[in-house]
Design a binder for these strands. Sequence first.
DNA 1: TTGAAAGCGTTACCAC
DNA 2: GTGGTAACGCTTTCAA
Lengths: 339, 339
Amino acid sequence: MANITEVAAAAGVSISTVSYALSGKRSVSPDTRRRIEEAVRKLDYVPNAGARMLAGRRTQIFALTEPLRKDTHAPTHMAFVLAASVAARRHDYDVLLLTEEEAQKGMRRVATNRLVDAILVLDVAPDDARVALARQISCPSVFIGVPLDSEGLICVDLDFEAATARAVDLLADAGHTTIGLVGQAQAAYEKSNFPPRVRSAFLRRAEERGMASFHGTSGGARASRSAARRTAAELTGRGATALVLHTAEEAHGSVLAELAERGLRVPEDVSIVSVGSSFDTSHLPRPLDSFPLDPQASCDAAVDLALAAIDGHPDAAVHLIEPSYHPHGSIAAPAERAV
Amino acid sequence: MANITEVAAAAGVSISTVSYALSGKRSVSPDTRRRIEEAVRKLDYVPNAGARMLAGRRTQIFALTEPLRKDTHAPTHMAFVLAASVAARRHDYDVLLLTEEEAQKGMRRVATNRLVDAILVLDVAPDDARVALARQISCPSVFIGVPLDSEGLICVDLDFEAATARAVDLLADAGHTTIGLVGQAQAAYEKSNFPPRVRSAFLRRAEERGMASFHGTSGGARASRSAARRTAAELTGRGATALVLHTAEEAHGSVLAELAERGLRVPEDVSIVSVGSSFDTSHLPRPLDSFPLDPQASCDAAVDLALAAIDGHPDAAVHLIEPSYHPHGSIAAPAERAV
DNA sequence: TTGAAAGCGTTACCAC
DNA sequence: GTGGTAACGCTTTCAA
């Protein structure tokens, strides 16, 4: 409840000195600093947010827009929200949530409002309406995910193509000649931006390495026998000795269950690599090698780009995050096929 | 970018008149109002958030604290966050997210900061550390969920006891004499506030109705045969002709799958009622009668209580929301038991 | 029905 | 190294 004037009085200095001592934007003698810090502690002083926003040029708030479509995978989404929040706090920023239809009107509102310094855009769709909006408003926006038309936009994302290509390479190097991709649910290929990137990278790299390749989708685990299980069965049935998985955690489990039921061991009979998963593949019934989607890495990068843009140095480009490889022994040479 | 002074000039009135015209806190002549509205539109004027916070006594922001423990059920949690956001926007409030450890320091910060007008507390644990904090700080807090010690706190929650008792009553009225409860994962009974309330209400009501009752837990769906399936099998094995389900969506599916596998039909062989579910039980393989947990109802109530508290009328009490019954034909009289 | 002006609590520029 | 003070853009009291 104390304000800067009371702190200044208690420390026997002017309010500007208090302000500078706290912001560090001007040097203050050690003795003065000590007296101020003591007064701050004694009075439990915390600078008023509204006054700061008004006087300063920063609000210390990021908006986070999340459309929350019904097909959004909640755990992954939550991981991103959490990561964004953590990244923001590291730079003394708070996060304001913009959901649903509010994502549209809300973005415009908080931008003209001057309530936030920048906007972080989550769950980006290929034809995301927020793209046009971002170009209109003056508030810097950073997209976590890449829309179809990213011209002039600041975007961050895992390099899905590189991750997929490296996954295919690992399998090719191990000697596999026929591989399959268990992809996302069909709808995801229309509504989200990265599933198509993974699929095309998979097909391209497999061809470059002279491998035969197949792909299929996964989907809801409601039925007793999920789409992921069917796809896994079909791909191995066609002779694939290795699988690349780009699916939700449940579908990973389904694939493993299906293989187990058919008596196929990992990696002795089937090698597996997971790509772009946001969960821990080492805790699955059978730990899987993976090139994970790391929400924290993406969000850290996004926040850095946001801060730069706020500072007047927008880096309008697609910033791809180098995938990292986490081996868990799920790749081996293909078994000698019994005739 | 335009400010109130420019609007006032454009409309040929004073800034106070502009302010009053927009806030509606003082009557303005129709003609003046029209000119002001036109100026606002022409200049794209939106009041500056920081200035408003400083001058007014409202920030128009709620903090939303969410610990996001690893055992948090993401979809349910997301539903609450979304509902809170919607409820807030209805009253022109924005939502600031406080996650994890930040939930603690963050609550204190935004309270003394004067960045928010009130704090909405989600995912309340029985011994939640935020309870003590809420009592310390001056900023009003509303708990969505009921901690063990709710003395002096403003709390909102579904009336789980009533919902459970009504569920048991429906089954008793249908003629069942032996019923089972498929509860949550064991850990939930320690870390969350409502599972124990459901279980004790279940046992109490069953006894009052002279029924034999059993209960078991559900849990992770990782294994090929989940805890929910085992529990369902055990309960029906013990002679239960009706089940009350208080579990996640996946476990609902597991129970139905288990019954189907054993050739038990719903409701001909086994009646089922779902209690406190936050998903749509009418879209399950077999639609189930339910007393749902309605995030929007809880959050609407919470926001109303927050607004009242901000207005100086805190209603420190546990506000239980009346459960509503959604029948889907999953209750019938018990089958005549073959000897 | 309207206007003038005093804050609100900072930040940052200008002096010293 | 420190202090004075003009913004910042709004809300609200006091007058008319």
